[in-house]
Write a protein that binds this DNA or RNA. Structure first.
Length: 639
RNA sequence: GGGCCCGUAGCUUAGCAUGGAUAGGGCACUUGCCUCCUAAGCAAGGUUUCCCCGGUUCAAAUCCGGGCGGGCCCGCCA
């Protein structure tokens, strides 16, 4: 028996082996060979294939099939010497390599047993400090299900970056000074609402109130004026309006956080808009900006007195109506873009961190989330290497503006490391979600989670009639939130989601409960097996079709994560995050386990096979568990 | 006027970056499988104009050009 090779990325190791063989046989450099490597559509054709014959056909003036045969023949001896490979075959122009399934199983299964929860975690991006900003819901309403898409994408991206070794900080931007807040402040002061007496969950209460305010303000110019006055008075932190508003915002945010916790989403920091306004950050940013020649104070024309960025020379913006983008208005106040540029500068440490920080609350996971404040500790945050802003695709243009202005300011590297992680909205068949119109009512994230949890609980109760209510409650919640998270992740972010209850609450097939179920089945086998794995099983016995297919899927896990990270390529109009790829991998893994479960009995198999299969079940459980954790889908041991 | 995204079976979706073997799933529908590790499962059942036209190529769902249909964006607004 040859010694067990060690690796934390078995698929990659084996692919490299094949590439090295081809490099020698075809006299092509390894990077080129890598481009001509693919996985055959059917495992009967081979485990890994190369199409280099097409590349060589012209040069050698021979048909691809002839070249493939020649290369395969010249490799036969080499392949025989490699324990990990069984044989090489051609089919027409394709050179197909077959793994030694037993030996490959030994490599994979033994490696994972040692790595355990570290399997899939690599250090390719160790030392990179990454900031993820998501989801930025105004603290004046509950999250509707579209907000959940943002939050889930951001949280999952953060998990993935952590898995490849990044140091990740998760922040939430709190817009506590917007018009919505002023309108609500007017309403609660006008009606003299005692927020402490409100029974309803605060974000829902305010969300409904906001719809009312809209109706009133729409056709009452007097109210409109009063609200404008409140907007002004909110700037003065000692005013009664500011105090009432702060109380309201804090209560609402705490309620919103409860929704986040249900989804397993936790933050490190909240940056409050009011902190930006009062910390001196804007003034510092403005001073810096004015030192740049492309940022100027206009002295004539419609925008006289405004501080603007001159974008006339920038290709992407040449069609703007007016290439002077206003950053500070003629009255000196900042526009959204102005504040966003300043904030982006803070993120990279271009302007130093003048915020103070205090604990906002202890989260459901036991960790504190901090908020920016006027007093509190200095933290010297900022200075991130790479920044991901998770924002709807509709914001592509304004996001691009921010990054371009960063470049104009002389910070090209930071501009290039600014990522707009874009995604399309979630809507209904015939409407978009709107806070003003109240179309979100009935589709809040809480509503969806409630229904999903309720439905899951009924299923759990049916299957486990003898279990305690607590068990049904806990498992129901885990299955329900898992379903919602997976529903958002499995769709490609650049595709609009039309929310339909039947689809979101379908727990069969391509859905989270199927993934969780596969884990629970593996868990049950291991519980019933009782015997502790001795680590001496003859793993080369794992060579049946179903076993081998499962082993291959398990082996790909680290590559699947790295692929998603490599795919985070910055494009002019956004950075694509393929959450659907990692979700799809997890589903495929579950599928292959289900097939294995059906065709390969474990506990009833004869001793040697049983021992080997138990090891495979352990490897699967580790991989599936780690993958679910990356997706943020709760692991369920029994359901 | 310009820009971005989407168009794949009744519905929904993968694949498109880096062209390559019979275009993969799921839902719904039909049938079979629990004296056997949980049936939220497994197995079987499908000529789909890959929106259209043209081009490049040995090879196009994938690349290029031109259209068509749907969504979004281009304010001293927030």
């Amino acid at each position: 028996m040859s010694p067990t090779p060690q690796t934390n990325n078995p698929w990659n190791v084996t692919t490299d082996l094949v590439i090295q063989l081809l490099v020698k046989a075809a006299s092509i450099d390894s990077e080129t060979v890598r481009k001509y490597i693919e996985i055959p559509p059917d495992p009967d054709l081979g485990d890994i294939a190369s199409t280099v014959s097409f590349l060589l056909a012209k040069k050698l003036k021979k048909s691809p099939a002839v070249i493939a045969t020649e290369i395969a023949q010249s490799l036969e001896k080499e392949v025989k010497k490699e324990p990990m490979l069984d044989r090489v075959q051609t089919k027409g122009p394709y050179i197909n390599f077959f793994f030694d399934s037993g030996e490959f199983a030994r490599l994979v299964v033994s490696a994972i047993a040692k790595l355990d929860y570290r399997y899939g975690m690599t250090e390719e991006f160790k030392g990179t400090r990454a900031l993820i900003e998501s989801p930025a819901v105004n603290p004046s309403k509950p999250w509707h299900i579209g907000h959940a898409r943002n939050a889930i994408l951001g949280d999952t991206l953060a998990n993935i970056l952590e898995a490849v070794g990044c140091e990740v900080v998760r922040i939430d931007y709190i817009n506590d000074l917007g018009l919505q807040i002023a309108q609500l402040t007017w309403k609660i002061m006008h009606d003299d609402v005692d927020l402490a007496e409100v029974d309803e969950k605060m974000d829902h209460f305010l969300g409904h109130l906001y719809v009312e305010v809209q109706k009133i303000a729409e056709n009452d110019s007097d109210v409109e004026n009063k609200i404008r006055e409140i907007t002004r008075r909110l700037e003065d932190l000692s005013s009664e309006e500011a105090k009432r508003s702060a109380e309201m915002v804090t209560l609402c945010l705490k309620a919103q956080c409860q929704t986040a916790y249900r989804l397993g989403i936790y933050k490190n920091y909240q940056v409050w808009e009011s902190s930006i306004a009062h910390s001196g950050l804007l003034q510092t940013a403005k001073d810096l900006m004015l030192q740049t020649e492309n940022i100027l104070t206009l002295t004539e024309g419609e925008k006289k007195g405004c501080i603007v960025a001159d974008l006339a020379a920038i290709e992407e913006f040449k069609d703007m109506k007016d290439p002077h983008k206003v950053l500070f208005r003629s009255d000196g106040t900042r526009t959204y873009t102005g504040a966003d540029v300043a904030f982006q500068m803070w993120k990279f440490g271009i302007i130093k961190d003048t915020f103070h920080y205090g604990v906002f609350e202890e989260q459901a996971n036991g960790e504190d989330v901090y908020r920016t404040a006027l007093d509190g500790a200095d933290r010297n945050l900022g200075r991130f290497d790479v920044v991901y802003n998770v924002i709807a695709s509709a914001q592509a243009h304004p996001q691009r503006l921010i990054y371009t202005i960063l470049d104009l300011l002389g910070h090209r590297k930071q501009s290039l490391n600014s990522h707009h992680v874009a995604y399309e909205f979630v809507g209904l068949e015939d409407a978009d979600f709107s806070g003003r119109k109240g179309t979100w009512i009935g589709y809040s994230t809480d509503d969806v989670l409630d229904k999903a949890t309720e439905l899951a609980k009924e299923e759990v109760a049916k299957r486990n009639p003898d279990e305690s209510d607590e068990f049904k409650e806990t498992v129901g919640a885990k299955v329900g939130t898992g379903a919602v998270r997976y529903f958002m992740l499995k769709a490609s972010p650049d595709r609009k989601i039309t929310f339909r209850w039947e689809e979101a609450l379908d727990f069969n097939g391509d859905a989270a409960p199927y993934l969780q179920y596969s884990f629970a089945r593996a868990q049950r086998i291991l519980e019933k097996a009782r015997t502790k794995p001795a680590g001496t099983a003859e793993l080369t016995l794992l060579s049946s079709e179903a076993e081998f297919a499962l082993v291959k899927a398990i082996a790909k896990f680290p590559e699947e994560i790295l692929e998603v990270v490599r795919g985070l390529k910055k494009d002019v109009w956004g950075t694509s995050f393929s959450s659907n790829k990692i979700a799809g991998y997890c589903y495929e893994l579950a599928t292959l386990f289900s097939k294995f479960y059906d065709s390969c009995p474990v506990l009833k198999a004869e001793a040697a096979t049983r021992a080997a299969r138990l090891e495979l079940v352990i490897a699967f459980r580790i991989t599936m568990g780690n993958c679910l954790r990356v997706l943020g889908i709760p692991v369920v041991e029994r359901m």
